[in-house]
Amino acid sequence: MHIDYKLRGTTLTASLHGEIDHHTAAIARSEIDMEIDRVKATGLNLDLSDISFCDSSGLGLVMGRLKKMKAGGGSAVVVNPSERVEKVLTLAGIDTLMPIKKEERK
């Protein structure tokens, strides 16, 4: 698992690469939170387009970041999950709590 960051204004895009399970989610969680705090982001895009595996830990990771952003008055969006990743995320109705955005791949 590795993560790339891009900041536009105060919106942080975190692009996650690799597999999300309980092991990697713990690492991603602390890394992303540190970056959110460092740049004082008010918006968070979690780009999951390059996630090849995701179990319920991914759900926890996304929900946790949404909670953190909302607690600070901000917002969070999931961007480009694969059909597979989306299947896991929507099983718990995450799509009713936050937008899942699908963008054209460049």
Binding site: R29, S56, M63, L91, A92
Partner: peptide, 13 residues
């Protein structure tokens, strides 16, 4: 923690 409580549900489905 950040466990979603969906583990068994995912296994089932």
């Amino acid at each position: 923690g950040e466990r979603s409580g969906m583990g068994f549900t995912i296994m089932e489905s």
